[in-house]
Design a protein around this nucleic acid. Structure first.
Lengths: 364, 364
DNA sequence: ATGCGGAGTCGAATCGATTCGATCAGCGCA
DNA sequence: TGCGCTGATCGAATCGATTCGACTCCGCAT
């Protein structure tokens, strides 16, 4: 290919064909070509065929999404804001179920999900993707108030927001769970079995995700509503209970917390443990096994979430089952409805008590 | 708020402020206002302050990403194409690690990941999000040639593509693994222990994801390179081996396949099983336990991937460890480099043999 | 004094479509 | 014959920014 050819090609290759080029080749106006592609508006069959043939000849890839979204004012992109790294988020089966619920609901609407981390990008100084990326709506996936600034921006952009698994601000539309009453149910169950010395293995209190025994001072700084609500539910039944805060909903975190609670003399040890998630509960059960304690003989354990733990422990965990995928689906539907101009009401889901084999009366 | 106020607000709220409005209020031209926001180009401090103050007063949310991306020709969005539903994809720890690797690598570059399912949307008739969504680059996450049509379109759009964990087309830049030689290593290991009757529990052969015993006819239709390569590696050492195809890399699939292979009389049963993923291996070990067989006493099992299975089985699985997060990171880096105009070379990773406690000489 | 160059600012073109309103031909019907 | 209507097509405005080139000062070196 000669130098001249190359320069000539710059016009044909380096610059991709536009709708205008296609229209010119087909001998129609740009507007007609547009109609031929979008299907909205009357176009004669032969004209449409000519346009499509011209497009094929020029290797036209279809209307540029950027131009289309500018004109139409929407992009078909729904952002999902994660409060942590992708790896952390997707270790949590509940979050995956949430995400899957959203994905199922919006599938077929031609929309796609944009994964936006919040914390890391804010720390990096530059504007977060949440502020600069194209998006039609936002779903906050278990987000802490860390995103406050981004929320403000998003609001200004008049982008619909739905919070899932958290209530970052009172005036953000949220899909919530009956965390507190559900935990009351679990606590009552333990109480009715005769337990009096009960401890909680809790989810993180705040975005910093530090571990350690809960203190009143620390609790006053708590920001994560799920943790707070579930704690309050347990206190309704056992006002004096002790709690250990973990760094996240992970088996290993439950293991650490379980060790710290159970590696004491029998008379100083709780007879039952309320873990705020099933993964934490699995870790606690592991800790009990390590220490030679029987579950539920020596210590009863309850969890929260109702995820399938067949692969993790051999017990059938007593827990509250939350409809995670449905909550995700509801969030997805809310977003779609808001994009259609609707004003959906907040949704509150109820979890169901599941009696497994990890609870029994305390050892005499 | 009176009716009149509401109508008045329509002008202020319903139509969001634009850069032009901000510029007008600040008493500067639109171009200067743009420079004040983007920081590129010389703007006097007082002018910039005036612009930012005007923006604050109008509650301006910053430049519209749609307009910006149209003009600049890039959007900061990197698409990740999944070959299945989100739930399915994120059940596979390797895929999560891939995704996390990508996410880590692009974090801080101000870019975000767009999750695009391929199959489901193609089936739904309409154009897939892969064809219509705004994106600067595409990463195929273990995708089958199902995406052929979309790839073609993407090519026309001159969008960089990187394939991760698969080689959909010979001329697509790929991050690959030494699947075949790695499986040879595993097979040799079994051979050196004295095994002769070896079977494979394989990943899906094609997008349809059907299960069943492998037949020559079926194999001729196979499209998933990972499965094919690992199978070929096993055959190098055990040319005659039997294989069972599963519907995906899941513990339950391994369980089904394991049952079908192990629930035979001792002399018709393989003495060792090569599972093409660790999750499948875990399922096979479960099946062995169900049937009262000792691992590795009665049957040896090897896996592939090197994911942490502490929570799933109590064995230390003999397997090939692949650097999943690093592969993801490499794919991410390749994408960034291509967006910078570079032409990165394909990358091939090597997996490392890990000797666990699931292999032993066959029972005499 | 004159010319040069850079900082600061602005106007206008541009990105690539969608969409509104206008035009025009053909056709049925009074 | 003439009127209005519908279907097909087109021209031009529009979406909201970025960016190129030009223009104006002003200071400084010659």
């Amino acid at each position: 290919m000669s130098e001249t050819d190359f320069r000539h090609d710059r016009h044909a290759v380096d610059k991709r064909p536009t709708l205008a080029a296609v229209a010119a080749l087909a001998g129609v106006s740009v507007s007609t070509a547009s109609l031929a592609f979008s299907g909205s508006g009357p176009v004669s069959p032969q004209t449409r065929d000519r346009v499509l043939a011209a497009a094929e000849e020029l290797q036209y890839a279809g209307p540029d999404p950027r131009a289309r979204s500018l004109r139409q004012g929407r992009s078909g992109i729904i952002a999902v804001v994660l409060e942590e790294t992708v790896l952390q988020a997707f270790r949590d089966p509940v979050k995956i179920a949430f995400l899957d619920g959203i994905a199922q609901e919006i599938a077929g609407s031609g929309r796609a999900l944009l994964l936006v981390p919040d914390v890391s990008d804010e720390l990096s100084g530059g504007p977060s993707a949440l502020e600069t990326a194209t998006m039609d709506a936002v779903v906050l996936l278990g987000c802490s108030p860390f995103v406050a600034r981004s929320i403000t921006i998003t609001r200004r952009r008049s982008i619909p927001i739905v919070a899932l698994g958290s209530t970052p601000f009172p005036d953000v539309l949220a899909v919530t769970l009956d965390d507190r009453p559900a935990t009351v149910t679990l606590a009552r169950h333990l109480q009715s079995l005769g337990h009096r010395e009960v401890a909680v293995v809790a989810l993180p209190l705040e975005s910093s995700r530090e571990r350690g025994p809960l203190t009143a001072e620390w609790e006053s700084r708590a920001t994560i509503s799920t943790t707070i609500d579930r704690l309050a539910g347990a206190r309704e039944v056992f006002p004096e209970l002790a709690a250990v805060i973990t760094a996240g909903s992970l088996v290993d975190e439950g293991l650490l917390a379980g060790r710290s609670l159970l590696s004491r003399a029998a008379n100083e040890r709780p007879t039952a443990i309320i873990a705020q998630s099933d993964l934490l509960a699995a870790g606690v059960i592991r800790a009990a096994q390590e220490l030679g304690l029987q579950v539920p003989g020596d210590v009863s354990v309850v969890g929260f979430d109702g995820i399938r733990l067949d692969n993790v422990i051999s017990h059938d965990l007593t827990t509250m089952v939350q409809p995670a995928a449905e909550q995700g689906g509801t969030a997805g539907r809310m977003v779609l409805e808001m994009l259609d101009g609707g004003h959906p009401a907040a949704a509150r889901f109820t979890s169901a008590f599941h009696l497994g084999d990890t609870t029994a009366p305390p050892a005499p």
